[in-house]
Design a binder for these strands. Sequence first.
DNA 1: CAGGAGTAGTCATATCATTGACTATGTCCC
DNA 2: GGGACATAGTCAATGATATGACTACTCCTG
Lengths: 187, 187
Amino acid sequence: MALRHAVLAALLDGEYSGYQLAKIFDVSLSNFWYAVPQQLYAELTRLEREGLISGRQVIQRDRPNKRLFTVTDAGLAELAAFTTTPSKPTSIREDLLVMVQAVDRLDPAPVIAQLDERAGTAAAKVELFDRMLQRLRGDLDEETFLRTSDRVGPYLTCLRGRRFEQENREWCEQVAALLRTRAPLPR
Amino acid sequence: MALRHAVLAALLDGEYSGYQLAKIFDVSLSNFWYAVPQQLYAELTRLEREGLISGRQVIQRDRPNKRLFTVTDAGLAELAAFTTTPSKPTSIREDLLVMVQAVDRLDPAPVIAQLDERAGTAAAKVELFDRMLQRLRGDLDEETFLRTSDRVGPYLTCLRGRRFEQENREWCEQVAALLRTRAPLPR
DNA sequence: CAGGAGTAGTCATATCATTGACTATGTCCC
DNA sequence: GGGACATAGTCAATGATATGACTACTCCTG
């Protein structure tokens, strides 16, 4: 039930088409909520039918027409109601952790390889987040930005994503190093 | 497709019934893979049908009979194959982050309340993980344990869970503090 | 002795998410 | 001129997850 609220939250930053939203959910928002385009188009249809967003057709000459959506007052109210319903904590859901859980009884080599790879992608994501954070705060330093800006939500969630990936990277590196020193031979 | 591997990984530590597994998935393993009992019983049935685990009936006098499951060689091979298939990275999926993303346009008070609460539950989880880690390593200090034990998988995944909750807590506290200093009035 | 909590497991249903394929058109580059 | 890539969106099918209810027995506590 929270994809809809993620869509509403994303639309707070301006008018977007389903296609644009799909890209947002693929990069910045995927940080804490990922969705494939099909999900988004379906959700947009539902949201519009329920009057939480309103779309307007934009005719384009040299590319397909599109529909841009904005949040209605009812949509804002829905978001406000959402913030008052208790959110239950989630936890990590990672194949990689399942592998590490079982690693003592398996050949560690492929697990180490995956840890190395994941450490790399996590590092890349940290850099991506750093660039996004820099773009969001402009010339200001972080503290000033957070104190003075009137749009800090995206920055704060991005900070959380950065921390998560940083932790991910450090853990992967630590575990890979450990597994290398232990049991160089599979059993 | 990874619940099955999580079940197999959990069964590496000994014989368990569906009911016992449900408790494991509710506390320790929920760390990186949560599942409700219904899912587990269904998965156990499938796994046994496919020969990846084998169950044996245990007749009990003063409580319901149960079936204890162990991983077969085929199950171990399945886990080994699993470690060689590339795992795709996941990200956080939190209602709370959706709320923070939208907080600039909403009354921050309920969001702050939820952040406070989450900081509390995260802190409690950190303590829980600390106790679990201590139990796992016994008298040894962490470094010695990791160097010498032959069952470090659960310890390593638990470490990841601890880090995650610690980050969670710090982020919640930071954001709550920030939102309190800004805009004490809703708009 | 009633009520709650613990053990052990099952059924049905609804919603959510993932996968894969598919239609159009336009631009850019080799 | 062919192929890749970007824009914009849709359909169908399956797989995974969540929700709620239900049986049946025992132990413990007030």
